[in-house]
Amino acid sequence: MAESLGARVIHEKWQDDFSKARNTAIEHAKSDWILFMDAEVKKEDVAKILPLLNDDTVEAYIFKFVNYGGSNVSDDFAQIHYNFKLFRNNGKLKYVYPIHENLKNVADDREPIYKKADITMLSDYLLKNPNDMFQHVNLGVEYFNAGEYRKANTTAGTGSYKTRYMIAFCYEKLGQLHDAVQEYTKLLIAKPGYGQVFRKLFEIFVKNEKPGTVREFFDKYVEKTNPANQEICRFITHPYIIVLQQQTKKPSFL
């Protein structure tokens, strides 16, 4: 398929080394710059990348990547990492390490002179597609991982359970505990078996309420026969309640 579209395909035996595979591609490259493309790079992004080639002070650019998925609050929404994807074809830059490969100036034995490529694709997309709620959530996730919790709350919308959970957690991070409790409670009404929300409520309550009040609340609302809530039930009777109770008191939420 690639050849049919005009690409030159290089065949190389796989040697259990990602750097070797990438360096083979570098050796066959003839242009002044090299861009390792992924499936998420779209044709319209080229206009954002081209101006980067005019900066004579850098050897490479780091691109931001967002992977969605996971099972807890930091993984649930996204994992953000940065990789070298655009760099000069100057004969000095090669990939090192067989796995988790990284770019290095092997001629001068140092990391490349680089900048972060400030390309916010989702923001530009939403200017043209303001009603795409899925991408609103994705942009909210990026703000969340960057610690910009106010922007995350105003961007993400109120769609899925995970989105509403993120909004509640943003309120918690901002110290708006009344709002956080209110959002967590609304989420529990919509999805009573959401054990992770019970645990978040427990953490807030136990830091701000008397142990007896916390126990009374969970005796009333936690379904003890549900296996998903066993961890919560064990936690309620743990001495941790007493330890947390010794912390500074805050306004009541119950």
Rank of each mutant, 00 (worst) to 15 (best):
M1T: 13
A2P: 07
S4V: 08
S4L: 14
G6N: 02
R8L: 01
V9N: 03
V9G: 03
H11P: 04
E12P: 02
W14N: 08
Q15L: 02
D16P: 00
I26R: 11
K30H: 10
W33C: 06
W33E: 03
M37R: 06
D38I: 01
K42C: 06
K43A: 14
E44R: 14
E44F: 08
D45R: 07
P51A: 03
L52A: 06
D55I: 00
D56C: 00
E59Q: 13
E59G: 13
Y61V: 01
I62Y: 06
K64T: 12
K64L: 06
S71H: 08
S74Q: 09
A78M: 05
H81F: 14
N83S: 07
F84D: 03
F84C: 01
K85P: 02
N89P: 05
N89W: 04
N89C: 06
N89F: 07
G91A: 03
G91F: 03
L93H: 06
Y95L: 06
Y97F: 11
N102K: 11
N102Q: 12
A107K: 15
R110L: 04
R110E: 14
E111H: 13
Y114N: 10
A117E: 09
I119F: 04
T120L: 05
Y125Q: 00
L126R: 05
K128H: 08
N129T: 09
N131I: 02
N131V: 04
D132Y: 06
Q135S: 10
H136M: 12
V137M: 13
F144N: 01
A146N: 11
K151G: 02
T155S: 15
A156H: 08
A156N: 09
A156T: 15
E172R: 13
E172S: 07
Q176G: 04
D179T: 02
K186C: 00
L187S: 05
A190D: 15
G193C: 02
K200P: 01
F205M: 12
D219N: 15
E223I: 10
E223G: 03
K224H: 10
A228E: 13
A228H: 08
Y240C: 00
I242R: 12
I242V: 10
V243A: 13
K250M: 11
